[in-house]
Amino acid sequence: MSDETVSAGPDGLQVTVLLFAALREQLGEPQVERRVPTGITARALYESMFPATSAGRMPVMFAVDEVYAAPETVLHDGATVAFLPPLGGG
């Protein structure tokens, strides 16, 4: 994937990214560790890991540490961020 677009400097953060459903299949992993720049938002990390294609980009919701979070949430060091594709439970 596009590690170069989220290459962290010496002040970067370590985050865990959780993938589900179609995104998990697309990346081939349920969970990845990423070194990211300080100040990065959940949305920016998602967009860097899943570049838009001609079909656009899957709309997702975000969770940080198992709680829904706004797309512009700034990630903290050690955060677990989840990209949640449209839900299908029930």
Partner: peptide, 16 residues
Amino acid sequence: WKANQESGRGVLVAGT
């Protein structure tokens, strides 16, 4: 993968 029509309703969100 099948999404619910209700997905995200009432949640802070709609990402990208």
